[in-house]
């Protein structure tokens, strides 16, 4: 089955402190963390953010193996950026290939950039791994709500995301079915050059689009039949409520951020003591 492949934003259902946090708190923490990660520019900052991430992973009960698997798609980007840094940063020469000069400073910078990417991916995947899509969109809606004063359709954006997420498995299933139906008519999706392959997708994409539009139409009708008319005055089945633990988590993030900012001011972009 097609749907057995990797899925973006996979949810890992289990019970843990991280899972039970309010989605708004988690989104907020994620935003703070991302900013801090790019503010931090020295060894101590990476040490602290790295440990913070590991603690969160441990608390979430998500297997480390799963997170590492999530890193696979960015391996290429990481190697590429690291190579660029190693060869393009000025500094004391490590070795030279033709006109390309590898520098020690570049190596250190590349290493930190790679580390930053790894931490970033791990921490943000933790958000989707521990928060169900419904919770996530509910939280996002609440966070965007203040912006609705200046015309951002917060509820509509959240509803669109919910619907989109809801229909990913449906569309995958449908694609699988149509593909099999066309294969029964002798269609070949696997061989041929790029142009032939792209062409062979027409018998899959046309019916898929036709049915997606039909589904959208039916869904809109069904929503209207149940008097859906947008977000104004609408209540929720599960009301989100911030608890003490949510504030503790945010506080912990803020304290960590303060420390990272302090190290940036105090030490600046320096290497760990042993490497100076």
């Amino acid at each position: 089955m097609m749907s057995s492949g990797a899925i973006i934003g996979q949810y890992y259902p289990t019970q843990s402190i991280v899972h039970s946090l309010d989605p708004r708190a988690k989104i907020l923490i994620c935003i703070i963390f991302m900013i801090v990660l790019f503010v931090g520019n020295n060894f101590y900052a990476f040490l602290v953010t790295g440990i913070f991430t590991l603690v969160c992973v441990f608390l979430s009960k998500v297997p480390l193996k799963m997170l590492i698997r999530g890193l696979r798609p960015i391996v290429f980007i990481m190697i590429f950026t690291m190579a660029l840094h190693i060869f393009l940063t000025p500094g004391p020469t490590m070795f030279q290939i033709g006109p390309l000069k590898a520098t020690w400073t570049g190596l250190m910078q590349g290493f930190f950039i790679g580390l930053r990417l790894i931490i970033l991916i791990c921490f943000t995947s933790l958000l989707t791994l521990t928060t169900s899509p419904i919770e996530l969109t509910d939280g996002l809606e609440d966070i965007l709500k203040p912006l609705s004063k200046i015309g951002v359709p917060a509820h509509e954006i959240a509803m669109m995301m919910t619907i989109a997420l809801r229909f990913i498995p449906t569309l995958l299933e449908e694609a699988d079915r149509i593909m099999k139906a066309q294969m029964s008519r002798g269609a070949d999706f696997e061989s041929g050059n790029i142009i032939e392959r792209a062409k062979s997708l027409v018998p899959l994409l046309v019916p898929l689009f036709v049915s997606a539009f039909r589904r959208a139409d039916e869904l809109a009708m069904a929503m209207e039949a149940r008097c859906y008319r947008g977000g104004e005055g609408r209540t929720r089945m599960r009301e989100l409520k911030m608890r003490k633990i949510d504030f503790v988590a945010i506080l912990a993030t803020v304290i960590m951020s303060c420390f990272v900012i302090y190290t940036r001011i105090r030490f600046g972009p320096v290497l760990p003591p042993s490497m100076v």
Binding site: I178, S184, G186, A187, P203
Partner: peptide, 25 residues
Amino acid sequence: LVFQYPEQQVFEETVFDDIAFGPRN
């Protein structure tokens, strides 16, 4: 093999071309 609701697999511009999809393949 005729799938359930096979009309959902139809995609060509004309009925003739759609019926001819299999034989052409």
